[in-house]
Simulated scan of single mutants.
Amino acid sequence: MKAAHFLMDESPKKKTLRQLDLMGFLEKSGYASVEELTTRFSVTSQTIRRDIADLAMQGRVRRHHGGVALTSPIDAQTYRQRRVERFTIKHRIARRVAELVPDGASVFLDAGSTCEAVAEALCERKELKVVTYSLRAAVILTDRTDFTIAVPGGFVKNVAGSVMGESMSEFIRRFRFDTAIIAVSGIDEDGAMGDDDQNEVSIVRTAIGQARSTLLATDSSKFYRTALVHLGNVTEVDDLVTDAKPEGALQHTLAASQVNLHIA
């Protein structure tokens, strides 16, 4: 009887620890397939599906066909952590982005850690004209004396270092861009892009409307992540620069579109 009682106590413990590990893995990857998790944790697919169902009931993950993704937006602590954890990946993406931007181009540059890396890579170009609401990106770009850099006035948003104000969209409409370089908080399985800040979405949508082409720079952890505010669909962008090909439904969405996929 004692042995049976011990086994009953152990099973919930193992399950809890596995689900904690599963959440930790998703916080880094953003999305994982059932097959990938089955292999990673050396359990059956039925076990993983039960774990996913439990976590979905708690509102911590969102189930997708054949996989699972996080549902919660990124908080400040996680934002800072990812700036460090995915440093190499973001800079690979940034270098590829810079290769796609010709010298002398007029560019809108979004805010966020990926776009800060892009700003560093763009310093290898010549005579760019850049509009950005990211103070961090603007400071980086000032290393080039042949660049023209425009930033709006307003209040500085903590963590991201972006400038916010009532007339942001009006400021952006004064310019025309060869390329709008944007980032997102998540791309859902149907290709829906989103951000967790309504103000940033409004700015980026305006910039896209003023640009001849749109380049999305994002690492693969954003795949199958649901953001709070809808920005548009990934099929609307001209180029997508990332570190790995998406799997599942999103892969099929991109394959059926005219988006140029660049793997850094």
Rank of each mutant, 00 (worst) to 15 (best):
Q46C: 09
E200H: 07
Y31I: 00
L100F: 12
E189P: 05
P73Q: 09
V156W: 09
V156Q: 11
Q251H: 15
R176N: 13
P152G: 08
E36T: 11
Y79L: 14
S29W: 11
T39K: 13
V156A: 08
G186E: 01
L228P: 01
I93C: 00
G165T: 03
T78A: 15
F171N: 04
L7V: 07
E189R: 11
L215V: 09
R136Y: 12
A138G: 11
K90Y: 08
P102T: 05
C123K: 07
A138C: 10
T148Y: 13
S167C: 09
F25K: 10
F223G: 01
E27C: 12
I182R: 03
D54T: 06
R63C: 08
K90H: 10
L231N: 02
E116I: 03
L250P: 05
L261R: 08
M168Q: 05
N158F: 13
S169E: 15
G59H: 03
P246D: 08
M193Q: 02
V139G: 10
A3L: 14
A53E: 14
L22T: 04
V43R: 07
V241A: 06
Q198D: 15
V184C: 03
F108V: 03
D197W: 10
H252I: 08
V234M: 05
A180C: 04
H252Y: 12
I140Y: 05
A211S: 13
R212P: 05
M164K: 12
T148R: 13
G59P: 02
Q58H: 12
T235N: 03
I140W: 07
C123T: 10
T47M: 08
Q77I: 12
Q77N: 13
Q77L: 14
E36M: 12
R80V: 15
H252W: 09
E127G: 11
S33D: 07
E124G: 09
H64F: 13
R49E: 02
V201H: 04
R96Q: 15
M57R: 15
P246S: 10
K2G: 06
S221G: 06
Q251S: 15
I74D: 04
S202I: 05
F177Q: 00
S134D: 12
K245A: 14
N158E: 14
V139F: 14
G191K: 01
G112F: 04
T142G: 04
T44A: 11
G24A: 10
P73D: 09
R144A: 01
M57L: 15
K90L: 02
V84E: 12
G186I: 03
T71H: 11
D219G: 06
L122K: 00
D21T: 06
Y31P: 00
K129M: 12
F177A: 01
G67Y: 06
L254Y: 04
G194N: 02
R225N: 06
F223P: 01
E166V: 10
T88N: 13
Q81K: 15
E120Q: 14
K245F: 14
E170G: 10
L70Q: 02
F87S: 10
E236H: 11
N199T: 14
V237S: 00
M8R: 15
V151G: 09
L240T: 01
G66Q: 03
P12Q: 08
V130G: 00
L20N: 11
R136D: 11
A244P: 01
I48K: 02
R49S: 06
K2C: 07
F41I: 05
I74C: 10
D9M: 12
